[in-house]
Amino acid sequence: MFLIHCPYCNEEREQEEFSPAGEAFIARPEAPEDISDEAWADYVFYRTNHKGDHWEQWVHSNGCRKYFMVERSTITHEILKVAAFGADISE
């Protein structure tokens, strides 16, 4: 039910054009074989399920098919920021 601004198409479009793709900043471990089962499980299964402002990934699945990052309040569903991968999100 959101309007999402796609940073690649540079347009605000209905949510039905997009698909959620999980929490952002879940990096794949560099050397999976060298880490413990716990650390691997943490990467594969555990997510923060954060209440508040939360960075997540979305994909413009019925559009440009690009993945990007969205900062969204999980309380109000307000979308605070949208960023392409590699973009500076510190501001």
Binding site: S19, A21, A27, R28, Q57, V59, S61, R65, K66, Y67, F85, G86
Partner: peptide, 13 residues
């Protein structure tokens, strides 16, 4: 297709 794109765009760009 979508999963492969995700790997390419998010981890292995």
């Amino acid at each position: 297709y979508s999963t492969l794109e995700m790997w390419l765009q998010t981890e292995w760009n």
